[in-house]
Structures are given as C-alpha cells and as structure tokens.
Design a protein around this nucleic acid. Structure first.
Length: 759
DNA sequence: AGCACGCCGACT
DNA sequence: GTCGGCGTGCTC
C-alpha cells in the first residue's frame, strides 16, 4: 500500500495544563482522529515532564512554534465532546485574562475534583423504587404491626411521583433499607430501571405535571404570596428580561421579601424549561434557602458546596450539565458549573466578600457571574440589604437596573438604632450598666436578646500587670488570644497554640491579666448576670462540629434560648423572629482602620445584625456601645440608614479617586525573610514604571498591615488607574515579564485584581 | 506546581 | 566510599 503523502501534516493540539504557567503546550493528536472530532474544552491525558496530567484542549491545528522533535503525542482523549459550552469556555478565557491567572488552572477550577483527575463524565445512576399497583391499592394501616414499613409505604403513597431514589430515602430515614427490603418482598414496591430525578419540560408529555409541580404552595406560603407593589415591580422587571442579558440590583431591607422575589422569578424560569444558578456566600446559608425552595418547587434541585464529598460534587456538576437538575444552589465554587439550559443567575448577599476567592485564582464570583450572564445572554440578579458600593455605583450609572424593596413584609416594623456612649462608664466585661439594665428588662418580659461581638475567644490579649509582657505569636505580628475553656493561647492568624502559662514567662510573677473582650468572656459575664436564662453562643469555636449550628438555630427558633451571643455568624442571614433587642458590644474596633473598605464593611455588618431584630409584630431595638458617639459614619448610619451612608461613602471615594471610581490591583509577595520580597516588588515597580502610561499610579512597595504572618514576611505593591483597560494592559505586560524579575522564583507572589481588602 | 538533575555533609 | 540536602531549571 502506498503511504499517505507527506503533505498531510499531523494534527497538533494546543492544550491548557493545570500548572502555574502562562502558556499552552503543544502535542500530537492520535493519528486516527480528525480535527472536527476534537472540540475545544475536551479533557485529554498528556505526558508532562516526568508524569502525566489531565489537560484541556484549547485548539486543534497544524502548526506549532515548538521543534517537532520536542512534541509528544497525547496519551488519550477523555471526552468525545466538551463538557463545557462554547460560551463557558469563552468565560474561562476571559477570566484567565482579567485575573491574570494561568489558563490551565482556570480551566481546572471549572471542573469538580473527580473530572479534574480524569474520571469519566458519567452521571452515577442511583437505584429507584416505585409503588406497584398492589402498593398503590394497599392501605398502609395493614402494616401497622411493623411501623417502619407502614411509614415507608405511606411515604411512597404521599410522594408524587410515586418513585424515590436512594438519596431521597436517605433523607427520609438513614435506616430505610430493612423496611424497603420487606416491602419489596411483599411486592408493594418494585425496583425500576435506575434513574435520577427528572426535570419537568416546558412542553410535551410532562406539561400537565409541570404545571402542578410549580404551584405547590403550602397553605402557609399562600399567605405570603400577597406581594406588595415593590415586589411585583421587581418580579415583572426581571421576568421581562428573561432570555436577555441584564443585571439587576435588588436592594431589599431585611424582611422585605427578597427571597419571595427570587422564588417568583425562578418559577417563571422553570416554566420556560430553563435552569437557575443560585449563589450564596457560605454553606451555612444553603439549608434555609434549600428548605424554602423545596417547599415551593418540586423540581430536582442540586446543592454544591465544600462540605460535599467528591462523589456528591461530581453528581451535582453532571446533574446540572446534563439538565437533570433545574436549580443549583451553591457557593462560590459552583459558579462555573455548566448548565444545559441556562436561564438565570441569582447571587444573594452580593456585598459579601466571601464571593471573592482569596487565594490562587482570585476571582470575584459576583463579577464573573455578571460576565457569565452576558455571555449566556441571561439576566443576573444581585440581591442584598446592604449593597456593595461598587454595585450601587453601577446601579446609579444605569449599568444595573436598580430594584428597591423598602417595605417590610407584613406588619413588621424596622428596628430603631441607638448609640450608647460608654466613655468613662464602668464596664462589666465589656457591658455597661445601661446595657445590662436594658437586657434585664427585655429578658424579664420573656423576649430574646442578641448580643454581637466580632471576636471569639476569651480575650484578645494576655498581659503581665507587673512587667508589661504581652503574649505574642512567634510566627505572626499578632497577639495570642486567650481561650479560657481550653486553657490555651491561640494565634488566630496561623492557628498555633500553646498552654496558658500560669506565671508571666518574663518576670515569673503571677501578674497575668486578660485584656480586651471575646465572646467567651462576655458569655461568662452574662451567665453570671442572668443565671436563670439560657444562653447560646454561636462562633467558630462552638459550631465547629457538623450540624451543631443547625441544632443551635433550631433551639433558638423554638424559643429555648433567651440570650444569643455570637460573632459575625449571626449577621449572615439567619432569622431570629423572637429577638427584640440587639446589642453590638464593641462597634469602635471597625471605625479607624487604614483600609478604606473597613467602614463599608462595618456599616454592612451593623445593618445586617440590626436586621435580626424585630422581625415579627414587635419592633426591635439595636444598641451600639461606642466611645465615639459623635462619629459621623455611625450617626449617618443610625439616623438615615445604610443607603444614605453608602451615598456619602461614594462621594468620599470619588474625591479620593478610590474604587469604584478607579481600578486597583495588588501584587503581593512573601518569603521567609524580608529582603527578597521587598527587592522583588521594588524591581517590579521599576519595571512597571518603564512600561506604564501616565495614568497608572504605582504605590509602594509597603509592608502588609500584618508584616509577618505564619512565619512569612509580606509586602505589597498597589496599582491604581481610573481606566480599567490601561491597568489591564500594564498588568498583562508585567506578568509576561515577571519571571525575569530578580527573586521572582525565590519568593511567592500573587496578583489580586480588584482586591476586597488590602491585607 | 512537581520533578529531576546536580554538587557538598554525616552515615551503613 | 554512599544517601540525601534542597538550589535551579524545565515541562510541548
């Protein structure tokens, strides 16, 4: 047989590999595949260095800059077609460029761990069980001698459709297998072909089903379906833009019914046969939204967050990708989950900084979600009671549609805020007499109080009264925090801990004293003051174990707690309807930070915590202890509200030319000594000044506010420009040349585009 | 990021 | 005499 003419060149694949390198790698395609069967985005296994890696195909072609003898053939092709859509691939390219992060790592962040490690993209099927004709006809009463079987049969009979998969049975009761086995033996239940929960389609065989599935509002829900005019306007506005790109900022005070707006819009999207991506800042917030969605919608819903196992995340991702699930409720990491029929992205609590990834690929889930909506041509709905200044600015600039919910649902009244001047006042473990009296009154009337202190542990400082020695962390520029229960000193920055010393290590006397406040200390004081009241403390230390937060929340909402004490965990979304008094013990620590973001955060935090009070018929009060009762920010906030505060803050940002009136990027560098990172940043600054246009300001390098942390010395260089494209151009050029900068390989550096804090 | 190659100290 | 320390350089 004659050989093929030499003119047929071998196909060359340009692939992205998850390594911190800003370039693609070229490989030979297997000889028997054609270009058309190699769609961008498919996963490949390739030889790389000494080992093998999973790579993502960027493009197939016939030319390469690399010498042919250096090219290797790929090991194998993993996907017959891309698991990501063309538009989502474009999103990844955009994100890689915008955040200046290596393309391979960006691609791999879009996949769950299983697919990243080369597992085949097959949706695991779970066994499914259905009622038989006999099962439908049998009265579960007949099984009353075995209550578990009776309950299970009744559960099947009440479930619509009358089929259940293992996951649902697990949800019903952990130990369902024996009862099911018995029902199988009695032919009341049958084992059907394995399948996953279905998603109702817009038209066709399921049309009738679909309709009933969406309208299963319970009696309780029907009461809430009385929408006020603002809600109706918001819902109509978003629904009017379905199928198009638009960004909405839904600004709704706590209790104004934002979730109801979400649900009404979601319902319409589902009716169109499309899927919804709902992002929340943290896992803690998924259960309550999940519960409300499940009550309202009987469509398949998927959760995705970091507490799931790899298998669960694999299934969640593929469920969405294949259109088996209609709603994905997840945290930041769920942002890139592909959708077969994308219809809407909702980002709840859009101001929350947890949406910004703080290491590695430092993307903002909010900003990437907006770009994703733009590429997918679907609306993006941002919701918050305390919108970020950037989003408000975008709304004012008409880039976002601004939807406002200013009314509390039902008869609920907004809480009133009061500053309590504690200058020259005697404090009992941080609590003033006036505050204690207020607490006493409210507790006496059987109502709940909520006490907020954003610092866990007993006290943030251990000091020697005799010689002035302070317990410092050896690895960080920070004091060790006293944890009295565990008799430990712990560093909240590097996690290191040691025994609480009985004597001052410096002067060997017994003059050690706690200084400052933590939740443990306030807990002790409150237990002493109100020994007959039940106190629940919610902070990272008390809610570490899985499910403990949920248990406490149930206890609180059942009225089995009088005093709720905690850290910012309290500020995030949980509803405490019986709380009528909120006390913020120490509002001052956030007032005088060097980071201009701090006042915005403080205002959001105060407003969010305040929102926990007085949700029911009773109006709530919020007391803020302060030594700065004349502080302008505090006064604006408590008298005129968050929005007025935000408007003033925006004017200040404009005068200072700070974001959102300019754009920033922060180059951080760290190493186990101070010299190399500083020298590196200095060299980068010099390089940048050569390349930059006149518009870009280069500030620094300076030490990070905490210069030493976990044994590493940290410095940073800030870039700022009022033109985003100029800044981007400068950064791109820098990154392209950064390897040649002195010490670049000896230190750890990272670039943070649109930093949310300067630490 | 891994991983291998490559030149200088305490060990079977 | 070797095992191995991590400095430097490469990965198609």
């Amino acid at each position: 047989m004659p050989k093929l003419p030499d003119a047929t060149p071998r196909l060359i694949l340009k692939v992205a590999i998850p390594v911190p390198l800003y370039r693609l790698f070229d490989y030979y395609a297997p000889p028997d595949v054609t270009e058309s069967s190699l769609s961008p985005g498919i996963r490949l296994e390739v030889p790389f260095g000494a080992g093998k890696k999973i790579a993502y195909l960027i493009e197939a072609g016939t030319n390469s800059e690399i010498a042919p003898e250096k090219l290797k053939p790929i090991v194998r092709i993993l996907d017959s077609k891309s698991l990501l859509s063309t538009k989502d691939i474009r999103l990844l390219h955009w994100a890689s460029q915008y955040y200046h992060h290596p393309i391979g790592e960006v691609f791999s962040s879009a996949f769950p761990a299983t697919l990243r490690s080369g597992k085949t993209a097959i949706l695991p099927l779970q066994p499914c069980y259905v009622l038989t004709a006999l099962g439908k006809a049998t009265d579960s009463e007949q099984l009353k001698r075995s209550p578990k079987q009776q309950a299970l049969l009744a559960y099947f009979q009440s479930h619509h459709p009358a089929s259940l998969v293992e996951a649902e049975l697990n949800n019903w009761d952990k130990n369902w297998r024996p009862a099911l086995k018995a029902l199988l033996a009695k032919s009341l239940i049958a084992n059907t072909a394995a399948k996953i929960a279905y998603i109702p389609q817009l038209s066709g065989v399921n049309a009738h089903n679909t309709k009933s599935s969406f309208n299963e509002a319970t009696q309780e829900d029907k009461g809430k379906l009385q929408l006020n005019p603002e809600q109706q306007i918001a819902i109509a506005a978003v629904i009017g833009e379905l199928g198009k790109f638009a960004v909405f900022l839904l600004e709704g005070i706590t209790g104004s019914g934002k979730t109801e707006v979400y649900m009404q819009v979601i319902r319409t999207v589902l009716e169109r046969g499309q899927q919804v991506l709902v992002l929340v800042p943290e896992i803690n917030l998924t259960p309550q939204l999940e519960e409300r969605f499940r009550q309202r919608f009987s469509v398949a819903m998927t959760l995705s967050h970091s507490n799931l196992t790899d298998k669960q995340r694999h299934a969640a991702w593929l469920n969405m990708q294949q259109g088996m699930s209609a709603i994905l409720l997840g945290t930041r990491s769920a942002l890139f989950t592909p959708m077969k029929r994308p219809g809407l992205i909702i980002l709840d609590e859009e101001h929350d900084t947890s949406f910004k990834q703080q290491e590695g690929f430092r993307f903002s889930a909010r900003d990437v979600a907006i770009m994703r909506g733009k590429l997918l041509n679907i609306p993006v709905l941002l919701g918050s009671a305390t919108p970020s200044l950037e989003s408000l600015h975008n709304a004012y600039q008409q880039r976002y549609r601004h939807l406002v919910l200013s009314q509390r649902a039902g008869s609920a009244v907004e809480p009133t805020l009061h500053l309590l001047d504690i200058r020259n006042k005697k404090l009992h473990h941080g609590l003033s007499e006036a505050l204690i009296n207020e607490l006493r009154k409210v507790l006496a009337s059987g109502e709940q109080v909520l006490i907020f202190l954003n610092r866990r542990g007993f006290a943030p400082t251990l000091i020697c009264h005799a010689c002035g020695w302070v317990a410092r962390c050896r690895h960080c520029d920070a004091n060790l925090v006293i944890h009295n229960y565990e008799k430990l000193l712990r560093c909240h920055h590097c996690g290191r801990e040691q025994r609480l010393p009985p004597l001052c290590p410096a002067c060997k006397t017994g003059g050690l004293m706690p200084l400052g406040l933590g939740t443990e200390r306030v807990e002790g004081a409150l237990r002493e003051l109100f020994p007959d009241k039940t106190l629940v403390r919610l902070d990272r230390d008390t809610t570490q174990r899985k499910g403990s937060l949920e248990r406490y929340l149930v206890q609180i909402n059942d009225g089995k707690a009088d005093i709720i004490l905690g850290t910012q965990m309290l500020a995030k979304g949980h509803h405490f309807p019986n709380v009528t008094l909120v006390a913020i013990v120490d509002v001052d620590s956030g007032l005088f930070s060097i980071d201009y973001h701090a006042t915005e955060r403080l205002a959001q935090m105060i407003t969010q915590v305040s929102g926990r009070a007085g949700r029911a018929e009773k109006s709530g009060r919020v007391i803020l202890q302060t030594r700065h009762p004349d502080h302008a920010l505090l006064n604006t906030l408590i008298r005129e509200g968050y929005r007025r505060f935000a408007d003033i803050a925006l004017v200040e940002r404009q005068h200072a030319l700070l974001p959102p009136f300019s754009y920033q990027a922060l180059l951080r560098a760290q190493a186990d000594n101070a010299n190399m990172p500083l020298a590196f940043l200095q060299a980068v600054a010099t390089l940048a000044k050569m390349h930059k246009s006149g518009q870009i300001q280069i500030l620094g390098p300076v030490a990070a506010p905490m210069e030493k942390r976990a044994g590493l010395y940290r410095y940073q260089l800030l870039f700022q420009c009022d033109k985003r494209s100029e800044l981007q151009k400068c950064l791109a050029e820098l990154i392209a040349n950064i390897d040649s900068v002195a010490y670049a390989k000896k230190i750890r550096w990272s670039l943070d585009v649109d930093p949310v804090d300067l630490y």
